[in-house]
């Protein structure tokens, strides 16, 4: 049974912008999915819908067997969120709180307010140990008592990963986790996602701009375009065409594992358009 299922999912923002337009997809438990697509394609909108921060305008969304419509109860939402972690590009930590406290935030979905209050000032020993383990796993044990604002962007990402581990999430969504991180740290972070996926069986969706990383780490690739799915399949299927210059070779469907749902997203024209709009084209390593 699918752990994430979207059917004709639509999200229209109050200002009239369409974030997602009749998106349909399924993700099975234990998958590691890479999500590609130019800026504004709807990747972030999709993740925010999955964690209930945004509510669908139309269509159906089912996560961990729960229907996520406009009217999910708060209690239901908390239960879902204690099993689903969302990591953003920025804004992952509360700056004045310590790394320990930031990791402990991952427990709040399973903690009542009173315990959260006392725990804020006096952390329980077993929770401190769990948080320390999570911090150690992401290489941040020495920083446990530092303020989160003193960490670098990459380290803050890792705090968010530690929080997801603390949370015991069954689904991990990472929205451009390596967009502002150097190559070495990017590999470190993606290795962590891969470990979490393989060793803990967590379903992981990573939204990336670097095609080479996506191909290296993700057995399944989704390409978003204009709020819809343009490609869903293996990285090999995607690797058959140069995302800048050539359209995908749809005349050789056998060579493709996946199915091309629309036009390729990352054409040269699209990349140039993005560059002109002040965005840095994501992938410069396509000629490797």
């Amino acid at each position: 049974m699918a752990i994430i299922r979207a059917t004709n999912l639509r999200k229209v923002y109050p200002n009239g912008t369409t974030g997602l337009d009749r998106l349909s997809l399924e993700v099975q438990p234990g998958e590691l999915v890479g999500v590609l697509g130019s800026s504004g394609a709807g990747k972030t909108s999709f993740f925010r819908l999955l964690n209930g921060t945004l509510r669908p305008t139309a269509g159906e969304l089912e996560v961990l067997g729960r229907r996520l419509d406009q009217r999910v109860s708060t209690a239901e939402m908390r239960r879902l969120r204690s099993e689903l972690a969302l990591i953003n590009q920025h804004h992952n930590v509360i700056p004045p709180l310590s790394v320990l406290q930031n990791i402990l935030i991952g427990r709040l979905g399973r903690t009542n307010t009173f315990r959260a209050l006392t725990g804020f000032f006096n952390v329980r020993e077993n929770e401190r140990l769990q948080a320390a383990e999570a911090a150690a796993l992401v290489g941040l044990a020495p920083k446990l008592y530092n303020r989160a604002e003193d960490l670098s962007g990459g380290q803050q990402q890792r705090v968010a990963i530690a929080r997801a581990i603390m949370q015991g999430a069954k689904i991990l969504l990472a929205d451009e986790p390596i967009a502002s991180v150097d190559m070495r740290n990017a590999a470190l972070i993606l290795d962590l996602f891969k470990r979490v996926n393989e060793e803990l069986g967590v379903t992981v969706m990573i939204n990336l701009h670097q095609l080479d990383f996506a191909v290296r780490y993700c057995p399944r690739i989704l390409v978003f375009k204009a709020g819809n799915l343009a490609y869903d399949g293996s990285p090999e299927g995607l690797g058959n065409f140069n995302i800048y210059d050539e359209p995908p070779k749809i005349e050789e469907p056998d060579a493709l594992d996946g199915e091309i749902v629309g036009q390729p997203t990352l054409t040269k024209a699209a990349m140039l358009e993005e560059a002109e709009m002040g965005e840095i084209p994501g992938n410069r390593h396509n000629n490797d």
């Binding site: 921060t53 204690s82 992952n92 509360i94 004045p96 709180l97 709040l108 903690t111 959260a116």
Partner: peptide, 27 residues
């Protein structure tokens, strides 16, 4: 308070009181 930080804490399963305690007040 920065709405994105509120959403980060809410997104981890916090209720409104916990959001106050772990985001709005410390910030």
């Amino acid at each position: 308070v920065d709405q994105r930080l509120v959403e980060t804490v809410r997104g981890a399963g916090a209720n409104e009181m916990q959001t106050l305690l772990f985001a709005r007040i410390p910030l």
